[in-house]
Write a protein that binds this DNA or RNA. Structure first.
Lengths: 350, 350
DNA sequence: CGGAAAATTTGTAACGATATAGATGAGGCT
DNA sequence: AGCCTCATCTATATCGTTACAAATTTTCCG
């Protein structure tokens, strides 16, 4: 600190003293407003809450002062007193590095939370602990008013736990539990069904689908849609063995490359993710198989990526940003008060 | 709610009553520990803080009880009392949808924060407000103990503001300000330099580079590295006009497609991002230009994506997860206490 | 064994908000 | 005037934690 700073410090007057700490102006509290208006702290609090027993004129005056000095309630104090955290927790598996899957959802979520008092906290779920741990932790320690998570399983423990405790949440994907629960999901059944139909229409004779790990519900949906289509058409099919959408992309490609070198190889692929679709293309390329003639492909598109992929690939779009936005909106609705569960369910159509 | 639920509710006994609210067990506080140990709340607090004036035996006993009942200090109360938020705020421009850029960084950040009391809060910066707004807001209202942001500019207002107020932060990218500040950056100068050299070595005669918007410092670094290389080699060059790495991928491709149809077209491209690299490939493909012969390309790789791109493209890797991890670690170090600034700077080498 | 010093523990207040219950004053009614 | 009602505003306690000052117990010494 220089001499000038010290000199300046000495010269500081009353008004500046309070401002010294933050350098931007001391943080105003209810007390500040109370002093400015000559009212009691309690009155100010009520006025800002728009309580009807406070005179309208007073409410307006308080609101004006609050706005003028840029008052913002202290989250910690509010949280301590009321128990509400004003936090939404997104439980993220760092594994989901899959090309901006999380980013899109986060963008949608922040957009939904925009203008509200809610903050988005990222709670990682590290793979060396059980999946339910972060959820239990958030609930037990009241770390958030609502939870968002993804990759739902048919008998998802998290869903059970949260439902049992009536804790607000929404998940991406459905369970197969008897009890209805809030969710946002993409119609993966239709995706797979339509993808298969497209491939068949384009001349494919034997289809293959690369599925997510079996433990996820949407793997079943994809399989079901796929199977329905191939059975309707009475056409050959298989599912990729030994690799899933979560496998390392090199492993997926190695599997595909190998499979494409065997007899009875599939000539139509359905890919539930962009990376696996690229792996199909890479394998075909490495075998000098021509896309659209030797090998056909329908991919799920979740980013602008495939607009630049050549040769052009048929894709079906899933809007993850919208999914995030929906999850945010529905969760807020649920937090605001009890809502019939069916109003907290959204299925994004293909 | 079923009849059975109601019945169960009626059967609830005293011990369960306290637990009823959370359904997992009432949240233990210092008071709980105080009652269990027969100590005063203050003593327990001090004991857990490992204060030397508390008998060692007592400290151990308290710690044991705390661990047994799964005590976790209430964040709101701690925050209210101490002013520390235990929050790190990542200011994110939803614009950065660029293929998991954010996701990788978030993964690195959460890994760095793992095991600490810090939470990661995503603070969006919506493009209709000035860039400095979220930062000012976080600082003024003490919403976090530290700030992380990206896309640093040469005379970045956020850096100035945060430095002036001595507020802990770290940014991805450097400024050109006289005052040193904490940062994590990737050596984009070397990236561009080496990329150019590679292209020239591979036979390119005229280079082009697609730059980020000029307002970002790393645009200058890239340009500088690029210019140094082309001047050293005395070779033709240009920078993409009218489009940047932030442009819509279709716009980048349209520009490239047009340019590739003109005389004196470049035959070597440097792409600072994966999407723009794909746009180069798409344009070349649409012109039936062969990659590696008519057109050469060096791309920056930040995901596993390009491992599956065919024909194979020369890439240089930037580890964004590591960048996030470094930012987290350095920020924590800074928050813990004053540190010489040069210890808060990291440059990731090519 | 008295008494001071050292070691250990404790009470009180405060952070900023809000729920609850209570206070104040104006006006209306008999 | 006396009493009640209504509209408005206010005091108090509290959430869980920690800083500060103070109280208590133990230790040690002559």
């Amino acid at each position: 600190m220089s001499l000038e700073d010290l000199g300046d410090k000495g010269r500081r007057a009353k008004s500046e003293r309070a401002a010294a700490k933050s350098g931007v102006g001391a943080k105003p509290t209810l007390k500040t407003i109370a002093e400015l208006t000559g009212l009691a702290v309690t009155t100010v609090s009520h006025a800002l809450a728009d309580a009807p027993q406070i005179a309208l004129e007073t409410r307006q005056r308080v609101r004006k002062v609050a706005a003028d000095i840029g008052y913002l309630p202290d989250r910690a104090a509010q949280r301590l007193r009321t128990g509400r955290t004003n936090v939404i927790s997104l439980v993220l598996d760092p594994h989901e590095e899959i090309l901006g899957y999380a980013t899109s959802m986060i963008n949608g979520l922040t957009e939904a939370l925009r203008g509200t008092a809610y903050h988005l906290v990222i709670t990682p779920h590290f793979s060396d602990t059980p999946q339910i741990e972060p959820v239990r932790h958030i609930m037990r320690n009241r770390m958030a008013d609502g939870i968002v998570f993804t990759r739902t399983e048919p008998a998802d423990e998290r869903v059970k736990l949260l439902m049992e405790n009536n804790f607000p949440f929404i998940c991406h994907g459905r369970t197969e539990l008897a009890t209805a629960h809030p969710y946002v999901d993409y119609d993966n059944y239709s995706f797979a069904y339509q993808a298969a139909k497209k491939l068949i229409a384009a001349g494919a004779r034997k289809l293959s689908i690369i599925l997510p790990p079996e433990r996820f519900t949407f793997a079943h949906h994809l399989r079901h849609g796929f199977m329905t289509a191939v059975r309707e058409e009475g056409i050959g099919f298989e599912t990729a063995k030994g690799v899933t959408l979560d496998s390392k992309s090199d492993d997926i490609r190695d599997y595909l490359f190998h499979r494409m070198g065997e007899p009875e190889r599939p000539d139509g692929y359905i890919c539930g993710g962009e990376v696996s679709a690229l792996a199909v293309m890479a394998s075909a390329y490495d075998h000098r198989l021509e896309l659209g003639r030797d090998i056909r492909l329908v991919a799920k598109q979740t980013s602008g990526l495939f607009d630049q992929i050549r040769p052009r690939v048929e894709t079906i779009y899933e809007d993850l940003t919208e999914a995030g936005f929906l999850m945010g909106k529905l969760l807020l609705k649920r937090i605001a008060g009890p809502v019939p569960i069916q109003e907290l369910q959204a299925l994004q159509t293909v």
